[in-house]
Design a protein around this nucleic acid. Structure first.
Lengths: 220, 220
DNA sequence: CGTGCCATTACCCAGTTGGATAAACCCAGT
DNA sequence: ACTGGGTTTATCCAACTGGGTAATGGCACG
């Protein structure tokens, strides 16, 4: 299982504001063959600075940090050095924070209190460019993937005619019927007819629901 | 790194329609200490049947299968036995298939042609309830997470008061002001005031745009 | 060559919406 | 004690919305 870490040295930067935690982390990691801790940072700004200076292979990043939080730091780092892998190690497990961290570019996500083995698995996965998600957050993320486009709604939207689609898009932008009429060089009456056609096909009672269906269908 | 597989035996079911591939997989896995291959299946229906009968810890699942594809099989298995971990092992790397597989309940995703070590890492991660994503698909999935919630909108929505949030949620459901009034035991006039408050804070001109902002902000 | 679907326009009407404005109350922080 | 924000209520009014109904022309499919 340790083919990667045993054949080359992985250079790790630790970003953690709690001194105790930082020390513990460093002990756990540097005692590991194949891992070298090349630096530490205790806030987001230092994290970015040190990363740019040291160019580590992996950054082990906390979220709750002074000055600049770990998510923002991750974004900054990924912007300048996309090849640096970032492993989040934090106690935050709310959906918003997890998703935000991964969207920001984190490659793996570990929850504090986990075993060292899991952190090592995460580091290894990240180092290969793969992704590792802690059991506590894995289902959260997978469930999140379900939402973007609702198939049923997408099918309904598919029933619309070309013209109706154009009208619907403008409706989603919040345009009123008269505005849509001007935009499409139509009479307001025509637009009203289309709007009613749309609402019928989508089986909704007003334009707000029509917009909601459109969005859920992936009509971004 | 192999604490899990070295201390207990992981019972694996292999689902793969190509006989050569199936054989190769079985050789690779069963030669591994801590892994026992308890069964094989070469189409989706057998996969579900065998899983129900053998109750393996892990199912290594292909996507392109006769009769019932691996994604559908995954859904069926997860419905009856959620505790069975499923590792996708396939050559399909299109966004749709990857997302569909993970939404269906797959715990890890490996791409065919990868090293045995990566597959083992995936199996180990899955066995712990964690998630492992192959380098070839990891970024795909992470990027997919970005769309749902728009931060700017989320911040704007965060400015709303508790009451305004309640009203906004009902607005998204397409309720009219009178309907919202009844639902919250308020006067229609009050609702109107809140609606205007919401539109002001979100800097929009009508309830459709308010609903759109709400959705983009992740107010599902 | 109809029949059906789409796109276009039109009119009427009841109901809803959004803007402007005002006032009451409660509660928290200064 | 005062200020500020949130919640509640209210009224007036112009504009927009959604339902019903109907007519025209184009275009494609059988």
């Amino acid at each position: 299982m340790s083919e990667a870490s045993s054949q080359a040295v992985v250079r790790v930067l630790i970003v953690e504001d709690d001194p105790m935690m930082q020390l513990g982390l460093e002990q756990s990691l540097s005692s590991q063959p194949g891992i070298e801790v090349v630096g530490r940072a205790d806030d987001g700004y230092f994290a970015v600075e040190e990363t740019l200076k040291l160019k580590p292979d992996i950054v082990v990043m906390d979220i709750g940090l002074p000055r600049l939080d770990g998510i923002a730091a991750t974004q900054k780092i990924k912007k300048s050095l996309p090849e640096v892998r970032i492993v989040m190690l934090t106690s935050h497990t709310t959906e918003n924070e997890v998703i935000a961290a991964l969207s920001a570019g984190a490659d793996a996500y570990c929850v504090k209190g986990t075993t060292v083995e899991r952190l090592l698995a995460a580091i290894e996965a990240a180092w290969e460019g793969a992704s590792y998600l802690d059991p506590l957050v894995a289902r959260l993320v997978m469930d999140h993937l379900k939402s973007p486009t609702n198939t049923a709604d997408a099918i309904a939207v598919g029933q619309l005619s070309q013209r109706e689609l154009e009208v619907l898009k403008l409706m989603v932008e919040g345009r009123s019927n008269p505005e849509i009429a001007t935009a499409l060089y139509l009479s307001p009456n025509t637009v009203k007819t289309h709007v009613r056609g749309i609402m019928n096909k989508l089986a909704v009672d007003d334009r707000v629901q029509a917009a909601v269906v459109a969005l859920r269908a992936g009509l971004v």
